[in-house]
Simulated assay, not measured.
Amino acid sequence: MTHRLPGMAGLLFVLLTGLVEPAAADQVCAIDDSGREICLAAPAERIVALSPGATELLFAAGAGERLVAVVDHSDFPPAASELPSVGSHDRLDLERLVALQPDLVIGWVTGNPAEQVERLERLGVPVFRIEPRDFEGIATALERLARLGGSGAQGRLAAERFRQGVAELSAIHEAAPPVSVFYQVWDSPLMTVNDEHLIGKAVTLCGGVNVFGDLSRLVPRIDEEAVLAADPEVILAGGRGEESRGWLADWQRFPELRAVARDNLFFVPPSLLQRPTPRLLEGSRRLCDRLEVARGRR
């Protein structure tokens, strides 16, 4: 008997190891936009999104039904508005959030309060940080979120449709005559974007030349004198909500601007350009259409 015990112990070890290994193999892992690999024992069942963009990406990736909470201004798709809020993207109600017992939180790399997010992690809540900075980043975000949310096939399909749409736009406008563009993000203070910003990349995709593209900050502050000196052929504005709130009309004070003289003052709903989600494709199409109108007015 004494010689058989080690064999039985070894067999037990093998059996127990066999039970553990499949669980490890079943893990779902993805690398977030901060460069960290996040692994879950199984696809998340209870997800909290800490930005409107993250909410929209999760729905687009097919994992929207697993969302249990969002933050303020998460208004797309309409189903997102029905979910409870755990504060704003820059000030979270941690007590309420933790009470929902999420098994995954989708954070924004630069948009959420670092101290609160780190506290979540200390409490053992996995946080997957995203912040797409280009078109491909949106596609891979869809794929990664779908993997973590158990909707891999839907996410891959959504990503491929998005990539195909971007490629089609690029092919249409790659040889288009360039158009100088000023994109207005905000009015007071006056703000724009550089070429590294996703909106700047949309301008380039459409054959536009961002007059402030070389500035170092993603969202630089400028003044009216800088816009007058650049004399863009087109002025594009976002706005508060889905309206320009008179931003474009205000430029009529400068009839010497080419954009004003040619009536190339255009509005694109900010939700279509200022959120890094699949709807950026629709926003880019509208932007491209506006630049094509400007070409026709030369």
Rank of each mutant, 00 (worst) to 15 (best):
M1G: 02
H3N: 07
R4T: 14
P6Q: 10
G7S: 11
M8D: 01
V14H: 00
L16M: 09
L16C: 10
G18D: 06
G18Q: 02
V20P: 00
P22Y: 01
P22I: 15
A24E: 06
A25R: 15
D26N: 12
Q27G: 14
C29V: 14
C29G: 15
D32F: 09
G35C: 01
R36T: 12
L40N: 13
L40T: 06
A41C: 04
V48Q: 01
A49C: 11
T55D: 15
L58C: 03
G62F: 04
G62R: 03
G64V: 04
L67W: 12
L67T: 09
V71P: 10
P78N: 03
A80P: 10
V86W: 01
G87I: 14
S88V: 12
E95Q: 10
R96L: 11
L97K: 03
V98Q: 01
A99L: 04
A99P: 00
A99G: 02
D103N: 13
D103T: 11
V105G: 04
I106E: 03
T110L: 01
N112R: 03
N112C: 02
E115H: 08
V117W: 01
G124Q: 10
V125K: 06
P126I: 11
V127A: 00
V127R: 04
V127Y: 00
I130E: 01
G137P: 07
A139R: 03
R147Q: 14
A153Q: 09
Q154T: 09
Q154M: 05
L157P: 00
A159Y: 13
F162A: 00
F162Y: 14
G165P: 13
G165K: 12
V166W: 11
A167E: 05
L169A: 02
A171E: 12
I172L: 02
H173Q: 05
A175P: 05
A175D: 14
P178Q: 05
V179C: 06
P189D: 08
P189Q: 10
V193W: 01
N194S: 11
E196I: 02
H197D: 15
L198V: 14
I199Q: 05
I199W: 06
A202D: 08
G207H: 07
G208A: 01
N210M: 09
V211D: 03
G213Y: 12
S216K: 10
S216P: 05
P220W: 05
D223M: 04
E224P: 00
E225V: 07
A226I: 06
V227S: 04
A230K: 05
D231F: 06
P232V: 11
P232G: 02
E233F: 03
E233L: 13
E233S: 07
E233A: 12
V234I: 10
R240K: 11
G241W: 03
E243R: 11
W247I: 13
W247A: 08
L248G: 02
A249F: 13
D250A: 15
P255E: 02
E256V: 14
R258W: 07
R258D: 12
P269A: 15
P269E: 12
L272P: 00
L273A: 09
L273M: 15
R275W: 08
R275A: 02
G283N: 07
G283W: 14
R286H: 08
R286L: 14
L287E: 14
D289S: 08
D289T: 08
A294D: 05
G296C: 07
